[in-house]
């Protein structure tokens, strides 16, 4: 009874989550951000620059994977629960006879959905513009980075969503993780690759199109299991935390 009710609740909560995440000013800004790779693809095309590796490294990796993906994911991932906790509307979801894992699953699906949509679409359009005329290699590179966006969306959103249940400053901590851990530190300490969502994404992308080893450090056969473990661990943690959800203290 509880189980069927929980499963039936998922699409309802997903729907609410989508309406919460979209239709705000930040969605417009994120659309603009998603337009940057497309804009650069048009620039490359206009310059007649037919270099698959150059576009893949200079735009798809440097802009789409490094910048667009984590920013979209950190905003949507932390907002899925963050906004509800802040407004107190989370009680309307939690004071219901449905399992907390179903609430986590629904929030996750909603946030991953919009993140994937925005980031994969951005790479698809940018790739089609610049790589379209470049034959099979161009198509392979585009597929590779679409896969990277997909894996990255699932990974980042899982981590940031879970983070938002543990701290109110999830957005800033997520930003520091992306900039410092994956950005500055991983260039200094290559071992961080095993613990970097960015590298998981690029590793999976390697299955479709081989990148330079210093760019994508993991093979697909390591990257995919690591990414799956990360998502599962993060979501289990989120459900565990939501089960113990307490209202913020006070003497009121």
């Amino acid at each position: 009874m509880m189980f069927t009710r929980s499963v039936a609740a998922i699409p309802l909560i997903v729907q609410i989550t989508l309406r919460q995440l979209l239709g705000r000013r930040r969605t417009v800004l994120l659309l603009l951000l998603a337009g940057v790779p497309v804009l650069l693809a048009i620039v490359f095309r206009a310059a007649n620059d037919a270099d698959v590796a150059g576009f893949a490294t200079g735009v798809l990796d440097a802009v789409a994977v490094t910048l667009l993906l984590p920013i979209v994911a950190v905003l949507f991932g932390t907002a899925a629960f963050g906004a509800e906790i802040e407004d107190g509307t989370i009680l309307y979801l939690l004071a219901k006879p449905i399992s907390r894992w179903a609430v986590v699953a629904a929030k996750y699906l909603g946030a991953v959905g919009v993140t994937t949509l925005l980031t994969v679409a951005s790479v698809l359009v940018a790739g089609a513009i610049e790589m379209g005329p470049l034959g099979e290699e161009g198509a392979a590179a585009t597929r590779a980075f679409m896969a990277a966006m997909l894996v990255g969306s699932f990974g980042y959103v899982a981590v940031f969503l879970t983070l938002s249940l543990f701290t109110r400053r999830a957005l800033l901590i997520g930003l520091v993780y992306v900039l410092v851990w994956e950005g500055a530190l991983s260039t200094l300490l290559p071992g961080i690759a095993n613990l970097s969502i960015r590298q998981f994404s690029l590793g999976v992308a390697n299955a479709f199109w081989q990148m330079a080893p210093d760019e994508a450090r993991l093979t697909p056969s390591t990257a995919l299991p690591l990414a799956i473990i990360l998502v599962v661990v993060a979501l289990v943690l989120a459900a565990w935390k939501l089960m113990r959800f307490e209202l913020p203290g006070g003497t009121d």
């Binding site: 009874m1 069927t4 009710r5 039936a8 609740a9 309802l12 909560i13 609410i16 309406r19 919460q20 239709g23 407004d87 107190g88 509307t89 009680l91 309307y92 979801l93 004071a95 219901k96 006879p97 449905i98 009121d252």
Partner: peptide
């Protein structure tokens, strides 16, 4: 439970909100 905090999903109509609760109740 009727919590003290005022916020309700502002984009839902009153009926949609109540129906949302009813559906989550199964």
């Amino acid at each position: 439970l009727v919590p003290e905090r005022e916020a309700v999903y502002p984009f839902l109509t009153g009926l949609d909100y109540v129906r949302f609760n009813a559906r989550l109740q199964g």
